[in-house]
Design a protein around this nucleic acid. Structure first.
Lengths: 135, 135
DNA sequence: GCTTGACTTCGAGTGCACTCCAAGGCGCAC
DNA sequence: GTGCGCCTTGGAGTGCACTCGAAGTCAAGC
């Protein structure tokens, strides 16, 4: 189903929603939901049939926001980021600020989870020792 | 409000729900919710007034399940773990299995988040360089 | 030309984990 | 003895992020 077209001499691949889902690890439901909710930079292109056609840029952007989401950024904030990028040049400082704030949160949370993990591993150690003596 | 009592010669401190909230970082709402939902090992002791009195063991257990929750274990699974502990001796292998499965999930997710974080840091690097040249 | 299947829309439904509310009880300060 | 504040209960409400359903469209294959 992926369509290969030629624009200005360079090959352009576009994907159906199912293929875009496959490529990004999201469901087709989620892809439509993200678009509706303003998380994508633009409305996705359509084939003459009205079906969505995802460009490589679309997929790249979706992969980026998937990284933001997987690190715990709320939908609302991803939308803010998309709004800034959509607004075009001149707000790079704001985008940077948003990303840095997120990075700091993620680092902090990563450290906390690592600490909790250690405590859990300690507990596991206790159980392993007691189970071992039982056998 | 924390009550110091003497039982069998050793000092026993018990905390009001507000103090237990303070000590565990949860809200009083959440503490009651966890108890209702079977996440605690037993019903918490009551003062003659009917108010809850949290023992040090209670607080220790709540801290443990808070670690499980903060590392992403669903309420449902925390309850399973509590059920096993409540059932008493003989199911240590099951508890161990549950904890190990959780540990493995956490390790995996930690690694994924770390990877996503690197990609975000790379992006930040790009913005920092471009903002820098603008100034 | 009819079926099939992948797509479309809008709106409603789900699951999770809290979070809050209203009405009432208890014990202490004034 | 009355106001105050902290507590109690059951049940309802909230916010988030999907997730699903129903009804309809379109292109391709038989």
């Amino acid at each position: 189903m992926s369509v290969i077209d030629t624009v200005a001499g360079s090959a352009v691949t576009s994907l159906s929603i199912a293929e875009a889902a496959e490529a990004t690890g999201l469901t087709t439901h989620t892809l439509r939901y993200y678009e509706r909710d303003g998380l994508l930079l633009d409305a996705v292109d359509r084939a003459s049939s009205g079906h969505r056609r995802y460009s490589e840029d679309d997929v790249g952007w979706i992969r980026m926001i998937t990284r933001l989401r997987s690190t715990g950024m709320p939908i609302r904030e991803v939308r803010q980021y998309a709004d800034l990028v959509r607004a075009g040049d001149g707000n790079e400082a704001e985008r940077l600020q948003l990303l840095v704030a997120h990075r700091d949160r993620v680092r902090k949370q990563l450290a906390e989870v690592a600490t909790h993990l250690e405590a859990i591993e300690y507990k596991i150690g206790l159980y392993e020792r007691s189970t071992c003596t039982l056998t």
